[in-house]
C-alpha cells in the first residue's frame, strides 16, 4: 500500500501521523555515558516503502538503525535508549518481548557481508533455527525459495556445501540478505549494504533491495546519494548538532534531493557539507 502524498501534505502533517505505518519510531534519544548520540528522532516507515537515511558521518544514522531492532544492546551495550518503537501497531520498545524475537521481524544487513565461516547451507539453516523454525523437512524448500529471491539459486544450487566465505563479496552480501529473509521479516534494515562492494555487485544488491520492497518495508542507511535517489521513496536527512545527531528533514526523496526546505539539507545534497 503505497500512499501518494503531495509535498504540501508532507509539510502540513507531522511525520508520525501518516496512515498505517509499518514501523514507527517516536522520540528516540540515545545516550552513551551522559552524551546524547541521538536526540529526539521520530519517523515512520510505510509498508512497501524504502526509507533512506542520509547524512554526514557521525550523525547517528547507524545508531538510529540499531535502535530499531534493538541490536544496539550488542553494538553499544552501555547506551541507553528513550522513546518508543511501534511495529505494525504493536509497541516493540519498550517491551517485555525478548529482543531476539523482534530481530526475526526486523532483520538487519550490515556494511560488510558477514556470512559465518561454514557452508552456505549451514548459514541458511542457522538462520532458520535461530528464528525458531523446527520443521526441518521444510528447510530445503525455504533455502531454495530465499536463495531464488536474491537471484543466487542458479549459481549456488550445486554448491550449497561450499564454504560461504569462498563466495565473492557481492554474492556473500546477497547470501546474507537471503539468510535474513528466512524468518519472514516485515522490515529489513540495511546499514550501507553496498559500501564494501565493487560497482557491479553493488548494482545487483541495489536492484535486489528495490525488488524486496514489494513484500516488506526497508530502511537503508547510505552515504551514496545517487543510490538513495534511485531506490528510496522517502529520505530522512540526519545532521549532527552540538555533538548529537538529529533528524533535520524528512520527506519524499525527490523533495529532499531537489527542493529541500532546510539550508543544511540543501548544502549536504549539493556536496557542500560532508
Amino acid at each position: 500500500m503505497l500512499v501518494e502524498r503531495t509535498i504540501t501534505e508532507q509539510m502540513s502533517e507531522p511525520a508520525t501521523a501518516r496512515p498505517d505505518p509499518a514501523l514507527q519510531a517516536n522520540g528516540i534519544t540515545v545516550s552513551l555515558n551522559g552524551r546524547k548520540l541521538l536526540r529526539d528522532v521520530s519517523l515512520s516507515v510505510q509498508p512497501n516503502e524504502i526509507m533512506a537515511i542520509i547524512g554526514p558521518s557521525g550523525c547517528g544514522k547507524t545508531t538510529f538503525l540499531t535502535t530499531l531492532n534493538r541490536m544496539i544492546h550488542h553494538t553499544l551495550p552501555a547506551a541507553t535508549v528513550e522513546g518508543d518503537i511501534v511495529l505494525n501497531g504493536r509497541r516493540v520498545f519498550p517491551s517485555d518481548e525478548n529482543p531476539a524475537d523482534l530481530r526475526c521481524r526486523i532483520a538487519m544487513i550490515f556494511q560488510r557481508p558477514n556470512p559465518f565461516p561454514f557452508s552456505i547451507r549451514m548459514n541458511m539453516e542457522f538462520a532458520l533455527k535461530a528464528a525458531g523454525d523446527r520443521d526441518k523437512a521444510s528447510y530445503p524448500d525455504k533455502i531454495e525459495k530465499n536463495l531464488r529471491a536474491v537471484n543466487l539459486w542458479d549459481a549456488l544450487k550445486d554448491r550449497l556445501n561450499d564454504t560461504a566465505t569462498s563466495l565473492s563479496g557481492g554474492e556473500q552480501q546477497r547470501l546474507c540478505i537471503a539468510r535474513a529473509l528466512l524468518s519472514g521479516p516485515d522490515v529489513v534494515l540495511f546499514d550501507e549494504p553496498c559500501s564494501a562492494l565493487d560497482p557491479i555487485s553493488s548494482t545487483a544488491v541495489e536492484e535486489l533491495i528495490s525488488e524486496l520492497k514489494t513484500e516488506r518495508s526497508i530502511v537503508i542507511v547510505t552515504h551514496n546519494l545517487a543510490q538513495a535517489a534511485r531506490i528510496s521513496d522517502h529520505c530522512a536527512f540526519f545532521f549532527s548538532e552540538d555533538g548529537s545527531g538529529r533528524l533535520m528533514e524528512l520527506g519524499p526523496t525527490d523533495q529532499i534531493m531537489n527542493h529541500p526546505r532546510q539550508e543544511t539539507t540543501r548544502a549536504y545534497v549539493n556536496g557542500e557539507v560532508c
Partner: peptide, 27 residues
C-alpha cells in the same frame, strides 16, 4: 572472533546459547 559473526548471529534472532554453541565455538 570477528564482530561480523557476532552481529550476524544476533541480528538473525539467535539467543546467546545458540550463538555460543553454533557460532563462537565452531568458528
Amino acid at each position: 572472533l570477528p564482530t561480523g559473526y557476532r552481529n550476524g548471529a544476533f541480528a538473525l534472532g539467535a539467543r546467546k546459547a545458540r550463538f555460543i554453541f553454533f557460532i563462537l565455538i565452531p568458528a
